[in-house]
Amino acid sequence: MSVKQDSFSVSITVGAYGSAFGAAAVAADFSVLQACLLSLLLFSGASQFAVVGVIAAGGTPINAIATSTLLGTRNGLYGLRLAPILKLRGLKRVVAAQITIDESTGVALAQNNESDMRKGFWYTGFGVYIFWNLFTLAGALGAQAIGNPSAWGLDAAVPAAFLGLLWPRLSDRKSWVLAGFAIVLALTLTPFVPAGIPIISCTLLAVIIGWRK
């Protein structure tokens, strides 16, 4: 497949997923405007779902910000990897930074030469940005129209979305072990500490398990 086709198919598939985000955000009592702003400004799927998930679970905004930011640190590392290839400066650097996400990085790094890598990055970044935002609006408006989120299963759509994001990362034994420990730790802490804390505490498990090779 050509770079363009690669970029387009990734953009439309991932973008469509934005409707799940829009719906989940509104189901968690965010306004349609707030849901759309998260997609326009934050623009990183897992982090956006984390903001919504932590608030929906009763966590504080600080907790939501911390969890979302920790999930977003990988975008910074993608930038480190891509910057020398993209040759960024000025406004171009600002735009590139905003669309540095899993998908634009993934398509770029899958190409064989630097020219195709640059094309893959920009096409996929803009493509996902456009579709993700359009579908967020559609999902948010849809959820607003239907009322009680539980009656439509929207309360299960949020964890299912997290599971969809987690699944491809469970690539080895270490990540399965970590996932298991994180679930146990989060649920064990839940009755005893303020909501949101059980989630962010699991960062510690990642540090412990990742420390040794």
Binding site: A57, T67, L178
Partner: peptide, 25 residues
């Protein structure tokens, strides 16, 4: 550690959003 952080946080988010209401299981 950076590749493992999303695994830990996503797993915890799944657990809490599936099996908890605020601070109750």
């Amino acid at each position: 550690i950076n590749t493992l952080i999303p695994v830990a946080l996503l797993s915890a988010l799944i657990a809490v959003n599936t099996f908890a209401n605020k601070t109750q299981l």
